[in-house]
């Protein structure tokens, strides 16, 4: 009898210490030896949406005031809203019980469109510097901040958040089909910094620290 399971396109070979069933997902909460960071964390099972309309001002998705300018982000109630352009916002629910897709037809669920991951730790900028020429450390920009551009030669959406001298992080989404090669590229770049996979618990803790 077939297991009715939803699967993430990212799979790490490391031993999981704690796995939680969330709906039909098997979410790794913690790996056996995560270390202190930097970490790469799979978030593909987290709900994500695309919101598009010619007049975004008539929306307050999940009670969030949509940021006014492309590149701006707002995190509220664990949902991150990223203004992409004049008519489009991406919404990522980072933690918590999964919200339903809002009724309005302006919303499209993008959870299966993309792979979503986080790279957390001081080394994130050194890792990113190997894979992209985007200026994630631009001192003129405040965080959280959305970048749309190439990462390891693949078009991605990336959000930089967290304290630069604490635990900065990057949330990244790109086409689901690139998951394997994207993770391989990140792991390769992060090898010298001892990048390790971590589970949802480490991520939830980081999100809590963002507020």
């Amino acid at each position: 009898m077939t297991d009715i399971k939803r699967r993430s396109p990212m799979v790490f070979p490391q031993e999981a210490k704690q796995v939680e069933k969330q709906g039909h997902w098997a979410v790794v909460m913690e790996y056996a030896s995560e270390g202190e960071g930097p970490w790469i964390i799979d978030l593909s099972h987290r709900p994500r949406w695309d919101l598009q309309d010619s007049d975004l001002s008539r929306f307050k998705p999940f009670e969030i005031d949509i940021p006014g300018k492309p590149g701006q982000c707002r995190l509220e109630n664990n949902v991150l809203a990223n203004r992409m352009n004049r008519t489009q916002v991406s919404l990522w629910q980072l933690t918590g019980d999964r919200l339903e897709t809002p009724e309005d037809t302006a919303f499209t669920s993008t959870m299966d469109v993309t792979v979503c991951l986080a790279i957390l730790g001081q080394a994130v900028f050194s890792i990113a510097e190997k894979l992209s020429s985007l200026d994630f450390r631009d001192p003129a920009l405040s965080t959280p901040r959305l970048f749309q551009g190439p990462f390891a030669h693949v078009p991605c959406q990336m959000v930089i958040a967290g304290q630069p001298d604490g635990m900065p992080g990057m949330l990244l989404t790109c086409s689901r089909g690139y998951a394997r090669d994207m993770v391989a590229a990140i792991l390769h770049a992060g090898h010298e910094f001892k990048l390790q996979p971590a589970g949802q618990l480490a991520f939830d803790k980081w999100v809590a620290g963002l507020a």
């Binding site: 492309p70 590149g71 992409m84 352009n85 004049r86 020429s133 970048f147 749309q148 551009g149 190439p150």
Partner: peptide, 10 residues
């Protein structure tokens, strides 16, 4: 106009 100045390759 949305993302600012970028590399031509993009």
């Amino acid at each position: 106009p949305v993302c600012g100045k970028r590399n031509g390759y993009e």
